[in-house]
Amino acid sequence: MSKAPRILRALRRTTLQAVPTILGIVILNFFLLRLTPGDAADVLAGEAGAATVETLAALKAKFGFDLPLLQQLAGYLDNLFHFSLGQSPRYNQPVADLIAARLPNTLSLMGLALGFALLIGITLGAVMASCVGRLPDRVLSVLALLFYSIPSFWIGLMLIVLFSVKLGWLPSGGAQTIGAGLTGWDALVDKARYQVLPAASLALFYVAIYARLTRGDMLEVKAQDYVRTARAKGLSPFAVTTGHVLRNALLPVTTMAGIHLGGLMGGAVVVETVYSWPGLGRLAYEAVMGRDFNVLLGILLLSSLLVVAINALIDILQAWLDPRIEVR
Rank of each mutant, 00 (worst) to 15 (best):
G38Q: 04
L69F: 10
L33E: 09
L56N: 05
E54N: 08
L80W: 02
T55V: 12
H82S: 11
F30G: 01
S84Y: 08
P37Q: 04
G86H: 00
P37K: 00
L73P: 05
L73E: 05
F63W: 15
L98P: 10
A96Q: 14
D66N: 13
G75T: 03
G49D: 00
A61G: 05
L33V: 10
F30I: 08
F83G: 02
Y91A: 15
G46T: 13
A45T: 02
R34Q: 14
Q71I: 09
E54W: 04
Q72W: 02
G38K: 02
A50C: 05
F31Q: 08
L59A: 07
H82C: 07
T52E: 06
A48Q: 11
R90G: 00
A45H: 01
S84H: 09
Y91H: 13
E54R: 07
L73W: 06
D42S: 12
P89A: 02
P37W: 11
D42M: 09
L85R: 08
A40M: 00
L44A: 04
L33I: 10
T55F: 14
D42L: 02
L44E: 02
V53N: 12
N79P: 02
A51L: 03
L98M: 11
Q93Y: 03
D78C: 08
Q71V: 13
Y91N: 14
A51K: 00
D97Q: 14
